[in-house]
Design a protein around this nucleic acid. Sequence first.
DNA 1: GTGGTCTAGACCACA
DNA 2: GTGGTCTAGACCACC
Lengths: 132, 132, 132, 132
Amino acid sequence: MTLSFDHNRPIYIQVMEHVYGQVCRGELNPGDKLPSVREMAVSAGVNPNTISRTYMEMEREKVVESKRGQGTFVTNNQSVIDELKVSAAKKETERFVGALSQYGYTEKEMELLLSDYLSKRGEGNDRSTNQS
Amino acid sequence: MTLSFDHNRPIYIQVMEHVYGQVCRGELNPGDKLPSVREMAVSAGVNPNTISRTYMEMEREKVVESKRGQGTFVTNNQSVIDELKVSAAKKETERFVGALSQYGYTEKEMELLLSDYLSKRGEGNDRSTNQS
Amino acid sequence: MTLSFDHNRPIYIQVMEHVYGQVCRGELNPGDKLPSVREMAVSAGVNPNTISRTYMEMEREKVVESKRGQGTFVTNNQSVIDELKVSAAKKETERFVGALSQYGYTEKEMELLLSDYLSKRGEGNDRSTNQS
Amino acid sequence: MTLSFDHNRPIYIQVMEHVYGQVCRGELNPGDKLPSVREMAVSAGVNPNTISRTYMEMEREKVVESKRGQGTFVTNNQSVIDELKVSAAKKETERFVGALSQYGYTEKEMELLLSDYLSKRGEGNDRSTNQS
DNA sequence: GTGGTCTAGACCACA
DNA sequence: GTGGTCTAGACCACC
């Protein structure tokens, strides 16, 4: 696959977001085994140390669990996953509103910006809603 | 004044965003003189070199013009300012939609998230729309 | 007139180059009186101190002479003016060749670059050879 | 190595030009790793911050790409490099012609100045075409 | 006074 | 190891 990275942001975070996306979208289910650090490193085209850090971080956030000698698994605790989705949404919404109000946009304008963007996006490509 | 900074992001960027906000909201008009590097450094509570970098970046983006021995001024080119506002909105909207669609949210849900957040924000504090 | 300045280069030097151009092109002849510092400052739209420095610099290079209470005059020494023209040419040629050879251009290519540029320039505007 | 600098121009620019020369002359190829900031600082005999600024500017101009924790690399985009060479030539030619026409030289004279200079240069030292 | 450059040295996150 | 940011303090040219 070899993800394409923005070299201005930490790669380990971008990999993390990628996995979180798979988990939240249901492509990885509770209890599923993640690829090994080495496999993931190869498929993403990055240094194993970087993936290692990704996994550590995800484990710290209780989204995955590593079992000695067996591998790393998506948590069985669905509430953690839900929480992940909810808090991401909150964070992004806060950021969006905060940034735009700093630039002088009104609340009405923000909603317009969003709906305009979504409708324009819908026109050109119908099936790309979940493209990474 | 002494702005409060998020220690996870470069200060010079945060100062830049602060100034861009003032320009886009019309608190600083085309041709206006910015505070000198040293003044701004004092009022923001940071090193002059940091502000110097802020000003350099803003000049690179043509939002501001430095005149040797005179000071730093907001561009007279209104279209640059308009573009600033528009491109910021586009960037933020893209980010918002990109992040949420990665987490599996539908377009309807995104609009709901936004309107819910805005209405909740309206309840608690009416006067905070423009707080920095 | 109000010359347009590149704010990345010293204004006093740009004014100097402008006057040197007039002298070398024969628009100002040996013995001619230059405008007063104040007049020049107004017509160029800059600070009188800046023009003052321009004049000092030109006097240092013996291209003009200031006579107490009478004003500033182009030198009567034609050889200084000739030398001005010659040394400017030498300096510019050196710079041109030095820069281009650093970028890997051969001597042949340099001559081609020049003749191409000149012929293209000739097409569009015939009378602008001496525009400032 | 310890480059020798013209003290009237910013060092970080001179280093930049030096690297651009290497890239345009093919001494540094697309994808090649540049010396680290610290190494280059030592070899050029300047402060690391100065080289850091050089690298930042080059990255801004897309000639170079910094990868966190890995180093700084020449862009793989050959067209950027070609453009670099072409635009440098254009800029220098414009400057040359602009300056000389301001001093009253005709187009014929400009070409003569150049060819004379090149032939004289050829006599004295044959091997200095690419000296840095 | 203004901005621009440079040094010295520190700390940090990333790979 | 790498680059990125920040501070402190200096010096300079310019207006």
